[in-house]
Design a protein around this nucleic acid. Structure first.
Lengths: 110, 110
DNA sequence: TTCGTTGTTCGCAAAATTACAAACAATATT
DNA sequence: AATATTGTTTGTAATTTTGCGAACAACGAA
């Protein structure tokens, strides 16, 4: 969601926080792992992997879609989902550089 | 929080989701960046960086502490905070390998 | 002892998240 | 037209998150 278009820090913070928030639930991590392990699959395949109601799965998919990490496409009568490769790379770079930005290693505490 | 002690996938999902959830708010990302840019600092320094009430800052710090990404130490009359280096490295590896686990690049949609 | 400083905790309110069943929509099939 | 299949949307309830002011706790200084 245009997270690479503006380099101002607070924008960056909003962006990485949005990705992180989407990843902030075990079920959504599971869905992302599942999608990352293949080119694409249908809603039903995802639902079969999970022990929760389809309405809940649909809701999680919506959040992941809104975050930009996945995309969906109607393929009547099914709906095909996959990782949004471009945004996936953006997120990957953001998280990596975020964690690499820790400079010193002087322990402060305990 | 013992996120490296068990390699079962659902445990891993819980763990990365917990880190991600802690990072799922712009203010908390800002705090993490601030702490990552130095060895350590006091609560007041963090509060000064942010346009929010101290009670709210304290709350965000508590969540970050609970996630394991930071640690705090009383240094009367102040409280010193810093990145939890060990867990930071764990999180870094988890996120990196998570994003690298995407195998194929065949676009499915749109 | 009485202040002043530094942060945490409490109590509250508004908003968001999570999960589900039931209803619905869109399209094939009979 | 009636049915079956595939998912989304709606409505509802319980829980969590977010944010703040006020109260509180711990300590040093006057």
């Amino acid at each position: 969601m245009d997270c690479n278009k503006n380099s101002e820090r607070y924008i960056d913070n909003e962006c990485i926080a949005r990705f992180a928030k989407a990843m902030g639930h075990p079920t959504r991590i599971e869905i992302l792992r599942f999608l990352a392990s293949m080119d694409s699959c249908y809603f039903g395949d995802i639902h079969n992997e999970l022990p929760i109601a389809k309405a809940t799965v649909s809701q999680h998919l919506k959040e992941l879609k809104d975050s930009g990490l996945i995309q969906g496409e109607i393929e009547t009568p099914k709906v095909k989902y996959c990782i949004h490769s471009e945004n996936w790379e953006i997120a990957k770079k953001m998280f990596c550089s975020f964690f690499e930005s820790k400079k010193s290693n002087g322990e402060c505490c305990g």
